[in-house]
Every structure is written in structure tokens, then in C-alpha cells.
Design a protein around this nucleic acid. Structure first.
Lengths: 118, 118
DNA sequence: GAATCATATGAACAATCATTCATATGTCTT
DNA sequence: AAGACATATGAATGATTGTTCATATGATTC
């Protein structure tokens, strides 16, 4: 009946090692970062912005999506410092925030570009 | 009343360029991959496995989580070829599937290790 | 300053995802 | 072959996330 392996350490050395690895890293932060990239709309926005500056309207045209859906996702990306804005009259232009660009994202975009070239 | 920028192309060149970038990449696949890494439990499992082999029981001890929660997530990771299994008697050992390991994940794990070292 | 355009935002709803509980499967031991 | 153990799985529930609609804000033009 007791289906309880949770109270016994089965392979103490490996468990200890794994626990240490976990403690030394920050899974919540990592997962949070990947969550940003895990939405198709958000990834599309980032890809669209990877080489040009676009206003909200351009983005929703490009992705063929509702303006408000885009706007909500842009807010999310903005809050996490993946994109930044510049106002020009009525329009607001978005660009990648390259200084803050996480190496993983930079690599992803670079990687795409390579494939494109081949 | 017409709040419709969707019918007009505001900055045709940039939109055209962005559309091409999107077409040349695979946002759905990319997002799918990041989704795998976007769950805290899954990231923890991958980190835990980054240096040692563990059985299911060890993993749930390490993460202090229910066996069945772990098992469900392991199935997901298995289906996407991020981990592989080896049976030894009653126990099933999991390891990272290093051959298939996506460069992004490899880099992430390597990056963690570096930070740990410093 | 009223109308119009571009973007942002709040609330509601829908869809997706993770975890739980109960139980099934497969292996070992006696 | 019966009992115990390790893992897997299905169905239900709960939590999180994305999109929509309606409307607000801020800037421009007449």
C-alpha cells in the first residue's frame, strides 16, 4: 500500500548532487524567461522586430492579428525589457532592446538568420 | 470610428521585410521548444539531470514533488526527446538525451555551470 | 476644441497547462 | 502466484495565459 519513495533517499549521492545543482541555479527565473519566448505571438513579434523597427499597426498587419492582442503582448515584452519604444507623433515604434537582449534570445535570432542564409 | 490600421500598410518596406523574416523562420516550432523549458518543474528536472542519472523516485525526492506530477512531466520531456530512460529492475533511470540536446538548452545548462564555478 | 487616428488597458471568456487522486502496469521477492 | 514496490496513466480540478470587446488615453489635424 505504501507507495512512498518520497521518504527514503534511494540514491543519496546522486540526489545530493542534483539538489546542489538546483540550489546553485535559479529555476524560477529561468522558466520565467523561457515563458516569454514560449508564446507564438510573442516569438513572432520578436522575430518581426529582429531586423526592423515597426509601429504597433505594422506589427498587427505583419502577424495578421488584432491590435489589442498585439498591444497586450507588447506590454508584456516591454515590462520584461525585451523591447523598447519610441514615439513619433501618433505612432509608437518598437525595437528590440538589444543592450538587454539575453544571450539565449540573441543566439536564437542569430541562429535563425544563419538558416535563412543557407 | 474606423480604428482599422489592419487594412492599410503603414510602412510597406518594413512590413514586407518583417513578413519575410517570419516566413523564413518557424515560430510555432520555436515557441513549442521554449514551452518545454517554460515550466518550472520541467526546468528543475532538466537541471537535476544535467550531471547525474536519476530514477523517478530520486527526482521526486529532489524536487519535493509528487511522483505522479513528475511522471507526467517526464512523459512530456520523453516525448520531445529531451530525456531518455533505462530500466534497471523496478526502477527507471532518466538521463538527458545529450545527442538530441538542442543547442539552446545545452548553452543554458553550460551557462549555469559557469556561474556556479565563479 | 471637435473629430480622427494610433495605442493602451480593463474585464470577461476561452483555451492551455500542471497537479492531484485513483488506479493500472510491470518487475521483483518469497 | 501473491504481495510489495516503482513507475505510468486517465480523468477531474485548479491555475495560468491569451484573446476579444469595449472603452480610455494621448496626439494630430481642421
Amino acid at each position: 500500500m505504501s507507495n512512498d519513495c518520497e521518504e527514503f533517499v534511494i540514491h543519496p549521492d546522486n540526489v545530493a548532487h542534483a539538489k546542489k545543482t538546483l540550489e546553485d541555479s535559479n529555476p524560477a527565473e529561468l522558466a520565467g524567461f523561457f515563458k516569454l519566448l514560449a508564446g507564438e505571438t510573442r516569438i513572432k513579434i520578436l522575430l518581426a522586430l529582429s531586423e526592423v523597427e515597426l509601429c504597433v499597426c505594422d506589427i498587427s498587419t505583419t502577424l495578421n492579428a488584432k491590435q489589442s492582442a498585439i498591444s497586450h503582448q507588447l506590454r508584456y515584452l516591454r515590462q520584461h525589457r525585451l523591447v523598447k519604444t519610441r514615439r513619433d507623433g501618433k505612432q509608437i515604434f518598437y525595437t528590440l532592446e538589444r543592450e538587454h537582449l539575453h544571450p539565449i534570445l540573441a543566439q536564437t535570432l542569430a541562429h535563425m538568420k544563419e538558416e535563412e542564409a543557407s
